[in-house]
């Protein structure tokens, strides 16, 4: 735009004779004249206004409150899980295990693209969507999954029930002892 302005402006005078002080000051003025400056400022102000309005509008689809219900699920008293047991909980899409060291929960939601990995008879997990394979402790050993299956945080509620959090994860290998 500024280039257009420059091309239609009359060529500058080369003669120094008889110049008024205004013309002289214009000759030494920087490339952008006052008129150019105001025009450019107006144009950029318009661009900034549109951009700000667009960004403001795009803020709307980014939710600040999510529709998920409470991510914590109560599972009854910890004693309900027998030693050396493996229990699948569909509402969590997770397995709860108990061994001699304590309780732990492994999410069966594949870390690749969110399919539900099935647990094989040998204890390994296999994802139906892209064939990721995980060890019994969730460690990834094959396929495209970028990391092992998540271990979910466990706690005890005031009324003595075992609580598993669908979203909060703990370091794999962390056991819960009631």
């Amino acid at each position: 735009m500024s280039e257009d302005h420059r091309s239609v402006r009359p060529p500058r005078r080369t003669s120094h004779e008889g110049e008024s002080s205004l013309e002289e000051s214009r000759r030494f003025a920087p490339e952008t004249s006052r008129r150019d400056f105001l025009g450019l400022a107006a144009a950029w102000a318009a661009v900034a206004a549109v951009a700000a309005a667009a960004i403001g509008s795009l803020r709307l689809p980014m939710p600040s409150v999510f529709p998920e219900s409470n991510s914590q699920v109560k599972l009854g008293p910890p004693g309900g899980f027998k030693p050396d047991s493996a229990t699948y909980l569909p509402e969590l899409s997770a397995w709860v295990f108990r061994d001699e060291q304590g309780l732990y929960a492994i999410s069966s939601v594949c870390t690749h693209l969110g399919c539900i990995a099935g647990r094989e008879p040998d204890g390994r997990f296999k994802c139906p969507c892209h064939g990721s394979i995980f060890e019994a402790d969730g460690k990834v050993v094959g396929g495209p999954a970028p990391k092992g299956l998540n271990w979910l945080a466990m706690s005890l509620s005031p009324d003595g029930q075992l609580v598993v959090d669908k979203v909060r994860t703990v370091k794999s290998g962390t056991r819960f002892t009631a």
């Binding site: 689809p61 980014m62 939710p63 999510f66 998920e68």
Partner: peptide, 9 residues
Amino acid sequence: KEILLGAHF
């Protein structure tokens, strides 16, 4: 993902 789904699922 949050913009697309408006949720985590």
